[in-house]
Computed example of a mutant assay.
Amino acid sequence: MQDPNISPVNPLPPTVSALFLAIMAVEALFTLGANGLLGGAQAVGWRVGAIQDYGFSSDIFRWMLDQGRYPPEHALRFVTYPFVHGSFTHALFVGVMLLALGKFVGEVLSQWATLAVFVIGTLAGALVHGVLIVAQPWLLGGFPGVYALIGAFTYLLYVRLVSSGSNGARAFVLIGFLLGIKLVFGLLFGADATWLADLVGFGAGFAATIVLVPGGWARLRARLRHD
């Protein structure tokens, strides 16, 4: 007999909910401050100040590499930049995609593995952005981590399709569509260098899921031994 206490809606992984609430809480402070509803006159500059203090900058990253110094306040930018967005719309899109993809991925991976995918994509995206991007040094927002969840989603869907005898290439439709949208917007409104961090986040999430999926490390080790 089915348990009547079971919720008809699968709950979100707590880590995904926590990430979403953190992103939207920070954005709420910026938005309320910018509209004069919180913090007084100085609150108008909260977003700009947060970008300068917590956003990821490839200029600062290169300075750290050149000097061989990694002050904590700058090293922390690797994990603080996903919580600082350029606008309410930016944060909202990140939040919605985080909930949707986090729910799907969290149904297969553990909540900590789901969080690990997001963090790995966030770190990898910032690292490559810092090394390669000069003209647009600032990297803001949670899209690299969200794209890592898209990578996890793609791998899980790929495995499901191949296991059922279907064409595994269909798993890559979502990332192809999103990159196509970015290309169109880039052509219409100017190129945005953050696409590289998003793409790296996707690849990092895809690769991490191969290991983080239940039994994934054992399968990978067995395959390496066989090869």
Rank of each mutant, 00 (worst) to 15 (best):
W217I: 10
P82D: 07
G68W: 05
D59G: 13
E107H: 05
F61Q: 11
S7M: 03
A18L: 15
F93I: 11
A124C: 02
V108F: 06
I60H: 13
F104C: 03
V16P: 11
I181W: 13
G39W: 04
L19T: 08
W195G: 05
E107K: 10
L76T: 08
S87A: 15
P144C: 11
R221S: 12
G142I: 03
H226N: 12
A22Y: 06
A50D: 05
R160K: 13
L157Q: 14
A152Q: 09
A148H: 10
I51R: 09
F30E: 06
S163Q: 08
A197V: 01
F20C: 15
S57T: 04
G125V: 00
G121E: 01
L32K: 01
I6T: 08
S58W: 04
R69K: 14
T15E: 14
L127M: 10
F83K: 11
A135F: 09
V96G: 04
V119C: 06
Y155D: 15
P82K: 06
T194Y: 07
F93Y: 12
H226E: 14
G190D: 05
S163M: 01
A204G: 06
M24K: 08
A116C: 06
I181K: 13
L139H: 11
G168W: 01
A124F: 00
A135Q: 14
D59S: 14
G168M: 02
P4F: 05
A208C: 07
I175A: 11
V200A: 09
F78P: 02
A126L: 04
F83L: 15
W46E: 04
L132M: 13
P13Q: 00
V184M: 06
P14A: 12
F83P: 14
N35W: 12
N5V: 05
L19S: 09
V213P: 00
G45K: 06
G190F: 05
G203P: 08
R170S: 14
L212Y: 00
L92I: 11
L224K: 03
G36L: 04
A25R: 01
F118R: 00
R47K: 09
L109A: 08
W138A: 09
M24L: 15
V128S: 01
V128A: 02
A171G: 07
G205K: 03
G39L: 06
V96K: 05
L19M: 12
F202P: 03
A91T: 10
T15A: 14
Q2Y: 10
P214L: 03
G203C: 14
A100W: 06
V105N: 01
A116D: 03
